[in-house]
Amino acid sequence: MAEYALILVGTILVNNFVLAKFLGLCPFMGVSKKVETALGLGLATTFVLTLSGAVAYLVDHWLLVPLGIEFLRTIAFILVIAVVVQFTETVMHKTSPMLYQALGIYLPLITTNCIVLGVALLNAQADKGFTASVLYAFGAALGFSMVLALFAGLRERVAVADVPEPFQGNAIALVTAGLMSLAFMGFAGLVQS
């Protein structure tokens, strides 16, 4: 149990995929203008990431390893991820059209979100077992969602703040992201991983 808690804390805070591993920066900058959209994308990514993490582990463990073709992991995982994203998109279009439209282009872009492939590949290399792998993916997604929501909140405030002209827009957003990354370095050493 303690091991699983450590995995969650480790992926959410210490080795946060966005701020410590610098994966998934495209949606981090792109979908962080409004908190609601950020939460929506966080939710979609959490769902996709957990599901694709689980399926990717199963494909790796039961198909690729027994056949001795681990070198084809990247292709197999991309196939898995693309299918999970497409499936999520179809279901979301039916069940939550507002979220579907709000996410717009960013939903298909989860396919190319490097967090998703990164988690699958890291899981395959570490081979920690099914539960730990799914938790790792879930923690990574939670960390991503949390950071995205926090960042969106900051940017909503910054948008109405009196920012000096050269810093307006994306410049101040990048500075903010850098400061957040620095702040998250404070968690380093909390968990050894």
């Binding site: 198909l63 690729l64 084809l72 196939l79 898995v80």
Partner: peptide, 12 residues
Amino acid sequence: AIALFTVLAGAF
């Protein structure tokens, strides 16, 4: 490998 990916792609 070819068979596996054919089956996988077909199933998905």
